[in-house]
């Protein structure tokens, strides 16, 4: 009914597809490597899904979840997972990803991506939930490193070690958000080289890039600016160590005109190609 464009992400730069650009993208079909959409925006079908399925006929699509709460202490919400499964069945996305974070405790939901202590107990908890999600979806999940404004003193390992162990235990992949790493370097003193070394290169399926803002000395992952030079530099370093992967420009606040977003994607594309030449 909806012939898919392709079922794999091309190793090129794509953009996060947001509502203000739906009409223009479908009307002009610009040259985009691929697009990523937030899974929850399409749960239950409805009007937005019409658009996504139309987009899907022209571009490879990655579905990026912001609400699964893989590390939440509350039981995994099976209704949420079933909605994601249903969406995947219809859209047949090239990739499905979630964040390494939590959002629900004692029934209270915080609609944000929240950090947690990287303990062995949390590792077993998150791994068992990833196992379950992958079993239900019948596919590999990419898990994204988080941008954080605080770290937990009870952590027993770094986020990089935590992710590597998740890969080993569950076979999940990694969505490496380069801007999130940069935010954590600046906010929390994370060692970027240690993080990159910890990440198993074979597991990395996608990169994300975005722009942050600064409040009281804290870098906030607002996705409302162009990618900063320091993040481009870090991206180049990551490309050298891990290699090129499908790379996404995310822009969620003060969303610019489509050509601005595409120009950012071009910058990523050039860096990927330069990395391949070297």
């Amino acid at each position: 009914m909806y012939p898919p464009a392709t079922s794999v992400l091309p190793c090129s730069a794509g953009i996060g597809l947001r509502a203000p650009h739906y009409r223009e993208v479908l009307g002009t079909l610009p040259k985009l490597g691929w697009v990523e959409a937030h899974s929850e925006n399409f749960f239950g079908g409805g009007a937005p899904l019409h658009t996504l399925l139309a987009v899907r006929q022209h571009y490879a699509v990655s579905l990026h979840g912001v609400g699964m709460g893989l590390a939440s202490p509350d039981p995994l919400n099976e209704d949420h997972l079933a909605a994601l499964k249903q969406l995947c069945d219809v859209v047949q996305p090239a990739r499905v990803s979630e964040h390494l974070c939590w959002n629900t405790v004692n029934g209270d939901v915080i609609n944000d991506l929240l950090p947690f202590p990287h303990t062995h107990a949390a590792l077993a908890h998150v791994a068992s939930r990833i196992d379950h999600v992958q079993a239900v979806l019948g596919r590999q999940l990419l898990v994204e490193n988080l941008s954080s404004y605080l770290s937990f003193t009870s952590s027993e390992m770094s986020e990089g070690e935590f992710l590597a162990e998740l890969v080993r235990r569950t076979g999940c992949g990694i969505l490496f958000d380069v801007e999130n790493l940069y935010v954590n370097v600046r906010n929390l003193g994370v060692d970027e080289d240690e993080f990159i070394r910890a990440i198993p290169a074979h597991a990395v399926g996608e990169y994300h890039l975005a722009g942050f803002s600064v409040r009281d000395g804290c870098l906030v992952d607002t996705h409302d600016h162009p990618v900063y030079d320091a993040v481009w530099t870090l991206y180049e370093k990551v490309l050298r160590h891990i290699g090129p992967r499908p790379t996404l420009i995310e822009w969620d606040g003060n969303i610019p005109a489509l050509p601005v977003l595409m120009a950012e994607a071009d910058k990523a594309q050039q860096r990927m190609e330069a990395c391949c030449v070297l």
């Binding site: 605080l150 770290s151 937990f152 003193t153 929390l188 003193g189 804290c218």
Partner: peptide, 9 residues
């Protein structure tokens, strides 16, 4: 909260 921190703020 005694269990969260940042080295910079």
């Amino acid at each position: 909260l005694g269990f969260v921190a940042s080295p910079h703020y």
